[in-house]
Design a binder for these strands. Structure first.
Length: 584
DNA sequence: ATAGGGTTAG
């Protein structure tokens, strides 16, 4: 590598070369040269090397930056600032704060360049105490009117929820600039006070694209008022990419996919974020097929996907059971060196699980260096869903032994796994331990699981007691679940009680009477059956049509209840018939 | 100072 340089370069030439390095491997080459030329001990050279590395922060492993920093002799304020900035930028605020503390311990001078980055780190950590101490420091040094430092403080207080403190600084400042206005406005937006954000917007002496984007996002996504967002969007003079994306995301947030799509289709330029927003919109609002098509056209237009857009597409595959496409996307991202992170890997595991490919899921799971709560939960849910309830519970216990934190969805997963595997005692025990041992407050959904678990096992009275003694108001879905169990276990009396409860809650839709009439039919109570049917007719009730989708060999098939238009229609119904015969 | 990602079952 070193040989690629012609002859020996002078200090100046190397510095120049360094200045023009735009890739990590180029920096490595220059680094090697600096060492062979014994120039690395030159503090100025070392600091230039470090800052070049930090310029490329997105592509540089933190360990490399740390190494170069630790090898420099008596790093200057500039070098300290650089390494702190590096860690802030690579979203490692902990490290940045730590380095700042060491910087002060070492007695190195801190300056107006140091503070904005440390403050940013504190803001990311919501470290208000730390930040307030730094505020004191800033004042002592007389840096309170430096716009960068002050803006750092404003956004620190905004992120920490102390908007009043931010406002006080803002109001009392002589040197506030456009960024200060924008920061404060963003602060109001993030705490949901779009009205005050709007007032600031109107009062601003000048506005830039940030100002508009903050408020478009505030009205649209944060406040759910897309028409105001749209007004603003239409009024904006030179719309930039960000505000198009924010506006589209505003529509997506409310499920207005058509409107989102219309804007997407006419926007002058798109980036991978625009595509992600829409892909995710389709995923979240029930059209995973369209999401995948969109992902493919994105690739077709030569837009390089990143982890986030891939996560959306993979999610779509999970919903569709599209194993082939899911595997294809997996190998695509690997082939194109798109770094997988915990989130996509979790999405992949979920996809493999939902597509019934337990081996591939397990393989990924075991090889993951870092797992999140979601990763564990997805695995537990998947095992349960695929009929491995015992393994799911076992994994839950393993999670406990590892001391991993659990959240409400972990419990939802393990409880549903128990339901599937009829593990009534385990489920009951885990439910009881939720609050006691894990300090996770059970929500209605957890009560729903418990009711389901007990009800399916035929312990109908216990299930009813759970509903009637739970804290808070039981929802109709709890009674609905109990009603389903009443049908399974042919308990007419309780079913009638439940229907009364549902009626009181105004939740007696078509589905309820369908079940009730089935219950009567099973007992041969035909008079009651007719009564139910008549009731439904009189009220014009209909049960929603059942439907499902699955991919086979790359083609996506959709099935709708009662539909006979599939080319393999007869065979399908034959298999279906034999399956339901085989089921207990 | 502004835009995008993973989990329940029915």
């Amino acid at each position: 590598m070193v040989a690629s340089f012609p002859g020996l370069l002078s200090r100046g030439e190397l510095l120049n070369l360094l200045h023009n390095s735009t890739t990590v491997s180029r920096v490595h080459q220059v680094h090697a040269q600096l060492i062979t030329r014994a120039l690395f001990s030159d503090p100025f050279v070392a600091s230039r090397l470090l800052s070049t590395i930090c310029e490329l922060s997105a592509h540089v492993p933190a360990s490399y930056a740390d190494l170069v920093f630790s090898q420099s002799h008596q790093p200057s304020t500039f070098s300290w600032n650089t390494i702190i900035r590096f860690h802030v930028r690579s979203s490692n605020p902990n490290k940045a704060v730590l380095l700042f503390a060491r910087m002060r311990q070492a007695g190195v001078l801190t300056d107006h360049y140091t503070y904005p980055f440390v403050l940013k780190a504190c803001a990311l950590l919501a470290g208000l105490e730390e930040g307030a101490a730094i505020h004191g420091d800033v004042l002592k040094k007389g840096l309170g009117e430096d716009p960068f430092v002050m803006n750092g403080l404003i956004s620190l207080y905004c992120k920490g929820g102390e908007i009043a403190a931010a406002r006080k600084l803002f109001d009392g400042s002589r040197s506030r600039d456009l960024v200060s206005w924008n920061s404060l406005m963003a602060g109001y937006v993030s705490r949901g006070d779009t009205a005050e954000a709007g007032r600031l917007f109107d009062a601003m002496p000048e506005r830039d694209a940030f100002s508009w984007a903050v408020l478009i996002d505030g009205y649209g996504k944060k406040a759910g008022d897309v028409s105001r967002a749209r007004d603003l969007f239409d009024k904006m003079p030179n719309k930039d990419l960000v505000c198009w994306n924010s506006m589209i995301d505003g529509y997506v947030g409310l499920g207005m996919i058509r409107a989102a799509r219309e804007l997407f289709d006419v926007m002058p330029e798109r980036n991978v974020i625009s595509w992600s927003i829409l892909i995710d919109g389709y995923v979240k609002h029930g059209d995973p097929k369209e999401a995948l098509e969109l992902f493919q056209s994105m690739l077709g237009q030569g837009v390089r996907p990143d982890v986030i857009s891939a996560a959306g597409a993979i999610s779509a595959c999970s919903q569709l059971g599209a194993l082939d496409q899911g595997r294809w996307i997996h190998s695509y991202v690997k082939k194109h060196n798109i770094l997988l992170d915990v989130v996509v890997e979790t999405a992949l595991i979920d996809m493999y699980m939902k597509c019934g490919s337990l081996d591939l899921a397990r393989l990924l799971f075991d090889e993951m260096p870092r797992k999140s709560v979601v990763t564990w939960s997805v695995m537990i849910v998947g095992l349960g869903m695929n009929g491995f309830g015992c393994e799911a519970v076992e994994l839950f216990y393993q999670m406990e032994r590892r001391g991993a934190t659990m959240d409400d969805l972990t419990f939802l997963g393990v409880l549903t796994a128990c339901t599937h595997a009829r593990l009534v005692c385990e489920g009951r025990e885990i439910f009881d331990r939720m609050r006691r041992d894990f300090r996770v407050e059970p929500k209605v959904e957890h009560y729903g699981c418990l009711v389901d678990l007990l009800g399916r096992a035929g312990r109908l009275q216990e299930a009813r007691e759970v509903i009637e003694t739970m804290p808070g108001k039981p929802t109709s879905s709890l009674w609905g679940s109990l009603l389903a169990s009443c049908r399974t276990h042919r308990c007419v009396e309780l079913a009638e009680v439940v229907v009364e409860k549902l009626k009181k809650l105004g939740a007696d839709d078509g589905g309820v009477y369908v079940i009730m009439s089935n219950i009567y039919a099973a007992e041969g109570m035909w008079n009651q059956v007719w009564k139910m049917r008549k009731l439904m007719r009189d009220r014009g009730m209909k049960k929603e049509t059942g439907r499902s989708v699955i991919e086979v060999d790359g083609t996506i098939h959709e099935f709708v209840h009662g539909d006979c238009s599939h080319p393999h229609d007869e065979e399908i119904y034959e298999v279906l018939g034999s399956l339901s015969n085989a089921m207990p």
